[in-house]
Design a protein around this nucleic acid. Sequence first.
DNA 1: GTGCGATGTATCGGTCCGATACATCGCGGC
DNA 2: GCCGCGATGTATCGGACCGATACATCGCAC
Lengths: 198, 198
Amino acid sequence: MHGYELRKELTAKLGAIRAAISYGSLYPTLRRLQAAGWITEAAETPATAEEVPALTSRRGRVVYKITAEGKERFAQLIAQAGPETYDDTGFGVHFAFFARTDQATRLRILEGRRRKIEERREGLRDVLGRAAERLDAYTLELQRHGLDACEREVRWLEELIANERSGRAPTVPQVGTAGGRREDNSPPPPGETRKERP
Amino acid sequence: MHGYELRKELTAKLGAIRAAISYGSLYPTLRRLQAAGWITEAAETPATAEEVPALTSRRGRVVYKITAEGKERFAQLIAQAGPETYDDTGFGVHFAFFARTDQATRLRILEGRRRKIEERREGLRDVLGRAAERLDAYTLELQRHGLDACEREVRWLEELIANERSGRAPTVPQVGTAGGRREDNSPPPPGETRKERP
DNA sequence: GTGCGATGTATCGGTCCGATACATCGCGGC
DNA sequence: GCCGCGATGTATCGGACCGATACATCGCAC
């Protein structure tokens, strides 16, 4: 894909968890990925073979393609989990690419996320318990808000975890493979869901 | 307050909407605020009047105090609303300081936020409607997740708006005023609440 | 009396965003 | 026929923020 296209795709895929990626981030990133050898520039071929030299200095669309090393690196990235994998954005991105990993990774990430949210929940309970009379009504409402969100997300995660364990979750269309075997593409039963920031 | 203390206070107040402010952000910001004349450095007075010259080059705690201009600027900031006031973090911060503004401002911000979330909701509905078969089960679950979050937040906002309109919401302890008249400190009836990011 | 976790200020490199610039394409309206 | 305008497309710049890190002191438990 070329930059603009990539941005649109990512916006559609990640729209639920974050705003569109900025150009100031997108294009430097593409260059970084290219420098690392994870993507290559594949010149846009005009519809006809006729050369259209374009007198202006226009750069034109630049189509990028992922390389073998890129695919490997990508698989590695979505399978590895650190603390940042469990924060809001990190988890969202990983989750959006769950179809590209194995069940063990999915379970690991879901459980890490749950742990993280439980910690957040405890922190909020602390504040509501200990600092309640120091804070005004609106701030308290915000805390309750957040606490409730944590509780809901924990429930949601537990459903997803149970789902994975039961083996009913969909499995891995392999990266870049045309006819990768698919076993069962039924969605993980929706159930309670939640997230967001006020 | 001094830097560390400020960070702790803000973490308690804003813990529901964002992570703790980093030092790399905190200290430069304090310097910026000081340069702008909105805060001043008030030397930490040791418990006893005895000078403790501290042979080491230790900087020691630096206590800051808001200035008159700072208070004015603050009041101005929390009362003004632009597009960034309605995004997740921006709205959260404004909401956390709702007790410091007037009802008209609160209503304006709540309604702006509602509009923004409704737009997000429509965007997600679009994706779920139009791109559903292009996306895998996990990605779809993420969209449903986000959509549901939007719907809940809209309901929450509507309760808050109704509350403000009915006059049952708490009012303005004036910034820096000791005995500012308070009329009714009852919290806005909690009701459904939500936010967060996956 | 010693070690260690909490307190406290500070910087540095790197990433990301928002604003902006600039060029082309497709298409509806006059 | 052609004009304008919104969508498409690449690109940069300044500024804000983060994560890691450094370094010093304080209080307290062992």
